[in-house]
Design a protein around this nucleic acid. Structure first.
Lengths: 210, 210
DNA sequence: GTTTATGGATACTGATACTATCCATCACAG
DNA sequence: CTGTGATGGATAGTATCAGTATCCATAAAC
């Protein structure tokens, strides 16, 4: 398969494929001559994965590269794999809340983690975001919404357990790692759009009038 | 309060505040002379809200403008308010899955909605994303993860109910609308970071070895 | 044997979210 | 009442990101 056909089956424009090749997201095809390379099924799969991460999950190209590199090297432990996926989903964010709200939020989140017995590194990328978000709720005087934290945590805890179960059905380490990454990242998009649909429905029933 | 002080208390640079003024995200201060305006507490609150949406929730500035405009006009129905928040969270995404996966996904999602008795408009922004995401899971041969859809839907359904409860504690329509918007948008960031923490913890316990 | 496609390199583009610079006031310290 | 610094408003410039476009020499297809 040459680049034109690869483009046709994946519906990704040729210049974009070339761009991914340049950026090292997609491995080069096998060269038969200086300007003829052939691509195979793995390229199709990889390209679809790239597009799902970039288009659907809105993961920056540079992070996708990082994730794919760790998927390709089989000496990256699964836990680190997940760490990279998490970093792809949590950009470093500036602080938006007030100092006092942040202090209160830190306590609240720390308590939550202790109470649930979660094992979380203090440098976990999501930790700072969670604290900042709780602090933002407080700063914006939405303390009432913060009371839902435990309910959210319950749900999210059960997600993690279910996902592990679903994902460990995969026999090989490669497939497992890929599942974990896809589940982590696309799972986010899935849950998000599901939540919006549930909200839309509830809102339609509740406030059709106001 | 003049712009310098506004900048100091919110920690937003003056040029950025000017930019938000230009873009119409922040209402102009009251002019006492052609080059003296004074800002008040509402400006502080509004600016913090803008920063939370832009920095924390990564909502594009143009969408924030749209949301704030509808918050400010009291003739936008609450359901439409939510619709705008949803649109801010669901960029139009290109299709990344195969045609057959999309067909299967459409059926699956439609069934889910019917089964749960959700009221969803066919043009709901999240619907296309959900279908495309399910289709992506299938295309990437992660069908096993798709079986979790119902579990996710359960959780998400209960979120919506809880959120309504938490939010309707607000007496005035203005506060209610603001709560709904903040809850919808920052709630997403909250759930996301919580989920990542739960995963991190579960992953640490499960795969510390591999 | 001419038209079309390809690999590889380099340059350009459009969108987004700011930053920087100017300038004519304005406020206020001395 | 004058000099210093901040301000409002306008316009221009910048950085980053994710592609697009263009070239060219070569290879493939008809």
């Amino acid at each position: 398969m040459r680049i034109g056909e690869l483009s046709k089956v994946t519906e990704v424009p040729v210049p974009t494929i070339k761009y991914y090749l340049r950026e090292g997201l997609l491995p080069a095809g096998e060269l038969s001559s200086p300007n003829q390379a052939s691509y195979g099924e793995p390229h199709v799969r990889r390209l679809r994965l790239i597009r799902a991460l970039v288009e659907l999950a809105q993961v920056p190209v540079a992070q996708v590269k990082d994730i794919l590199e760790s998927l390709d090297s089989d000496d990256v432990p699964l836990h680190e794999q997940i760490g990279r996926a998490h970093r792809a989903l949590t950009p470093t964010r500036k602080q938006t809340a007030t100092e006092e709200a942040r202090i209160a939020a830190t306590t609240q989140v720390t308590d939550l983690i202790t109470r649930r017995g979660w094992t979380v590194e203090p440098e976990a990328p999501a930790l700072a975001t969670l604290i900042e978000t709780v602090a933002a709720f407080r700063t914006l005087s939405q303390d009432n919404l913060v009371t839902l934290l435990d309910a959210y945590a319950d749900a999210v805890d059960s997600f993690a357990a279910l996902e592990i179960e679903a994902v460990t059905a995969n026999p090989t380490r490669d497939q497992l790692a890929e599942s974990v990454v896809i589940g982590t990242i696309l799972g986010e998009t899935l849950i998000s759009s599901l939540r919006l649909l549930a909200q839309e429905s509830t809102s339609a029933k509740h406030w059709k009038n106001r």
